Computed example of a mutant assay.
Amino acid sequence: MAAAALHRGLDAQGYIAREGSLGRVPDAFRPVVAAARGRLPAVFGARLHSAYLYGSIPRGTAREGRSDLDLLVALHQEPTEADRADARVLGAGLDEEFAQLDGVGTLLYGRGRLLSDLERYDLGWFVACLCTPLLGEDLATYLPRYRPDSLLARETNGDLGLLLPRWRERITDAGDSHEARRPLVRFMSRHLVRTGFTLVMPRWGGWTSDLGEMAEAFASYYPARAGHMRTAALLGHEPTGDAAVLRSYVEDLGPWLAEEYARVHGVKAPRP
């Protein structure tokens, strides 16, 4: 369905439309995508089931020198440490070769996990709605269609309370290094904005991956926290290494958001 026919990211039946396509990849990033497509089979061989793009590159919003390449790779079996090491080598090679990239991130999962009942409204939804097929059989064929409801909200981001202790450890490990804190600000800012958005997603009645639009949707329901979320959206694009920002995330905005999320949607089903 053409993008113009969508309303708040939903198709005519009210389901979340799959975002992104290979046709939207900006010209500057087409060589990057071609290289990834060509190298993945050589790296993973018969272990590879399928591969996908997600993020700004398939959405057509990537910026040269600012955007990273986001890949999701589905293997026939659960990934091993050797598989993860192979993915890191692949990513480092692409990042070094293509100046238009600001890093490469690769998610590795087994096909069985991605299609499991436990992950149906988290990783399954992610593949079906936010990932663009690059190689192999599209797992979305085996997954349902999704609406922006409370179940989806709970299972995608209802674990913030469990994540906060790990975030505090990562902040401590970063120490006084501005360069070590900057990627943490970027990651945590984006995660909090997306969590804030999915908190209000059922009431807003749609889906978006635009951080600014997410923050504005949240702000319409939680005006007292609007400034915090708008700032986080900006830092998700242009992060600093400010230690005070990270402290505010794990001492104020994060705990408040986790508590409100649990109150509204409940807590995500536990994983092994």
Score class of each variant (00 low, 15 high):
Arg147Asn: 00
Gly205Ala: 06
Glu260Pro: 05
Ala174Met: 06
Ala269Asp: 14
Ser220Lys: 14
Glu169Gly: 09
Asp117Met: 07
Met214His: 06
Thr141Gln: 12
His265Lys: 05
Arg8His: 14
Met1Arg: 12
Cys129Lys: 13
Leu115His: 01
Ala244Leu: 12
Glu169Cys: 03
Ser67Asn: 09
Glu260Asp: 14
Gly14Ala: 08
Val104Ser: 04
Arg47Ala: 15
Asp149Tyr: 11
His178Ile: 03
Arg37Cys: 08
Ala224Asn: 11
Leu253Pro: 00
Tyr121Ile: 03
Asp159Ala: 12
Arg84Val: 08
Gly55Arg: 02
Asp159Pro: 02
Pro165Ser: 08
Arg166Glu: 14
Arg190Pro: 02
Trp256Gly: 09
Ala12Asp: 12
Asp70Trp: 06
Arg203Val: 11
Ala34Trp: 06
Ala174Ile: 05
Arg263Val: 09
Gly227Ile: 07
Gly45Trp: 07
Ala4Pro: 07
Arg263Trp: 11
Val264Leu: 13
His191Met: 12
Ser189Ala: 15
Ala258Ile: 04
Ser189Thr: 05
Ala2Cys: 07
Leu253Gln: 08
Leu114Ala: 10
Leu143Lys: 04
Pro133Gly: 11
Leu48Glu: 06
Met1Phe: 10
Ala74Glu: 00
Pro239Asn: 06
Leu163Tyr: 12
Tyr15Arg: 12
Ala74Ser: 12
Val250Thr: 14
Tyr142Arg: 15
Leu134Glu: 07
Ala5Asp: 15
Met214Leu: 10
Leu135Thr: 01
Arg47Phe: 00
Ala85Lys: 11
Arg111Asp: 01
Tyr142Cys: 14
Leu94Met: 02
Ala28Thr: 13
Gly55Trp: 02
Leu235Thr: 02
Leu184Thr: 02
Ile16Ser: 03
Glu213Gln: 14
Pro223Arg: 10
Pro183Tyr: 07
Glu78Asn: 13
Arg63Met: 13
Arg145Gln: 12
Ala217Glu: 07
Phe126Val: 04
Ser150Asp: 14
Leu118Asn: 04
Leu164Ala: 04
Ala174Val: 06
Gly45His: 09
Ala233Arg: 00
Asp176His: 13
Tyr52Phe: 12
Asp86Gln: 15
Glu155Gln: 14
Gly236Met: 01
Trp207Phe: 12
Pro144Ile: 02
Arg166Phe: 10
Val193Asn: 00
Leu162Ile: 00
Gly227Ser: 13
Arg145Asn: 00
Val264Asp: 07
Trp167Ile: 08
Ala62Gly: 10
Met201Asn: 06
Gly38Asp: 15
Ala85Phe: 05
